[in-house]
Amino acid sequence: MEEKDYTGTVPEKFDGGNINAERVAELHNIAAAKALFIAARKRLLDVNNWKEISKQPIAEFSLTDSNGNEVSGPVQEGMYFRIDIPGPGTKTGNGFDWVLVEKISEYQLEDIESIGIRVRPASNPKNMDQEIAHFYSPQTTSTFTITRENTKVTAAVYDRNTKANTDDLGFLDKLRNMLTGAVGILAFSKIQWESLTDGLIKDNNC
Rank of each mutant, 00 (worst) to 15 (best):
T64A: 06
L45E: 05
A187S: 15
F171H: 12
G68P: 07
E149V: 01
K13W: 14
T90G: 10
S123N: 13
Y6K: 12
N29R: 10
G184E: 03
D159V: 10
K13I: 13
T154P: 00
A32L: 09
K163H: 14
P11F: 11
I191S: 11
I53S: 08
E102Y: 05
V99A: 13
S62Q: 06
P121N: 06
N177Q: 12
G73N: 01
I58N: 08
Q139W: 03
N161D: 12
A182K: 15
Y136M: 09
I146C: 10
S54H: 03
E110W: 07
G8Y: 11
F188R: 06
R120G: 04
L169G: 09
A164W: 04
V75G: 02
E149N: 09
Q139N: 12
A32C: 06
P121I: 00
D168Y: 11
T197N: 10
K34G: 09
T151H: 04
N165Q: 14
S142V: 05
I83E: 02
S72G: 12
G78H: 05
R176L: 13
K13F: 10
G170F: 04
A187W: 15
Y136W: 07
E102K: 01
E102P: 06
N67L: 12
K190P: 03
N29G: 10
W193D: 13
G16E: 12
Y6T: 03
E26H: 05
G95E: 07
V119M: 08
F96T: 03
V153K: 06
D173W: 00
I185G: 09
V75D: 01
T64W: 01
T145M: 10
T154G: 01
G184Y: 04
S195W: 00
N165D: 13
I19E: 02
E110I: 12
F171D: 13
L172W: 13
W193E: 11
P74G: 05
F171R: 11
L36I: 04
E110P: 06
F135G: 01
I112T: 13
E22W: 07
E60H: 10
D97L: 08
S72P: 02
H134L: 02
Y80E: 04
I19T: 10
F135N: 03
D167Q: 13
T162N: 08
Y80I: 04
N124P: 11
A35F: 01
N177F: 03
D15A: 15
F144V: 07
D129F: 10
D159M: 07
G73Y: 03
A59K: 01
K152T: 01
R23C: 03
V157Y: 00
D159Q: 13
E113Q: 14
A39D: 02
E102Q: 08
G181N: 08
L179D: 06
I30P: 05
K42V: 01
Q76R: 08
G73T: 04
G87F: 00
L169K: 04
D129L: 11
A21H: 08
F61T: 01
E60K: 01
G170K: 11
N165R: 08
I191T: 14
F135I: 04
W98R: 10
V24P: 01
T197R: 05
S189Y: 09
P86V: 09
N20L: 09
S72W: 04
L36Q: 05
Y6A: 09
S123I: 00
